[in-house]
Simulated scan of single mutants.
Amino acid sequence: MASAFGTTRLSPQQDPAPSAPDAHDVGLLVLRVCLGIVMAAHGAQKLFGWFGGGGLEGTEMFFESVGYPMAGAMALLTAVIETFGGLALIVGLLTPLAAAAAFGTMLNAISVKWGGGFFLPDGLEYEITLAALAAGIALTGPGRLAIDRGLPVLRDHRLSHGAAAVALGALVAGLVLLIRN
């Protein structure tokens, strides 16, 4: 369907024969895979000590040093969320929740690094970019090149799904920050 602003996308209910994935879907795939790889790799650093990471012991010591209570449990929880949330983003599985997990994790990372300025070496630009990317994916949805397309509940992504996921990520991040010393 055409409009004054270009082509209007039809929902699967309106379009009896959905076409092949388009540039929008391929672009979302690229964004999901890139964010997913970054998150999964950071999680693997924490969980397994891969890629030069400190493993759970090093992550626990870091979390303790920046004021998280139950640092061991928080280290494990963060490592699992980052690893499996990243993998879920890569394949497009439960994308709004996976993106919300990345968003909430990055909000916590931003709060830990707050005061270091925007640019490197201890800046916030990396964490802010990842948080914005995660929120954008949650709001936009996974595109048609995702496992979510085969799940009846998530087949037709709605802005409300994404907004709820972003709000959930922010809420959980806020609760975690409230218990941080």
Rank of each mutant, 00 (worst) to 15 (best):
M1L: 11
M1G: 13
S3H: 03
T8P: 00
R9H: 03
L10W: 04
L10Y: 03
D15Q: 15
P18C: 02
S19H: 05
A20S: 12
D22C: 09
H24P: 00
D25G: 07
D25H: 03
V26I: 13
V26H: 06
G27V: 07
L28C: 00
L28S: 03
V30L: 13
L35C: 03
G36T: 00
V38I: 15
M39T: 03
A40P: 02
A41W: 10
H42P: 09
H42N: 15
G43V: 01
A44T: 07
A44L: 13
A44I: 03
Q45G: 08
L47Y: 11
F48S: 10
F48L: 15
G53F: 13
G53P: 07
G55P: 09
L56Y: 00
L56T: 11
G58S: 12
G58F: 14
M61A: 15
F62E: 03
F62L: 14
E64R: 13
Y68T: 10
P69I: 06
P69S: 05
P69G: 06
M70Q: 14
A71D: 08
G72E: 00
M74Q: 15
L77D: 05
T78D: 00
T78V: 12
A79G: 13
A79R: 06
T83N: 05
T83G: 11
T83P: 12
G86W: 09
L94Q: 14
T95R: 11
T95H: 09
L97T: 15
A99S: 05
A99P: 11
A101I: 12
A101V: 08
F103M: 01
G104H: 04
T105C: 09
T105I: 01
T105R: 00
A109H: 05
I110L: 08
I110R: 05
S111N: 14
K113Y: 10
G115A: 05
G117K: 02
F118T: 08
F118M: 12
F118G: 04
F118L: 14
P121Q: 09
P121N: 03
D122Q: 15
L124Q: 08
E125R: 15
E127P: 11
T129A: 10
T129E: 05
T129R: 09
T129Y: 04
A131Q: 00
A131L: 00
L133M: 10
A135W: 02
A135E: 01
G136L: 04
A138Q: 00
L139I: 13
T140V: 13
G141F: 05
G143Q: 04
G143L: 03
R144E: 10
R144Y: 10
I147Y: 01
I147W: 05
L151N: 14
V153E: 14
L154K: 08
R158M: 11
L159C: 07
H161P: 13
G162R: 10
A163D: 04
A164E: 01
V166P: 06
A167S: 13
G169Q: 10
A170D: 00
L171S: 13
A173I: 08
G174Y: 08
R180P: 14
N181R: 15
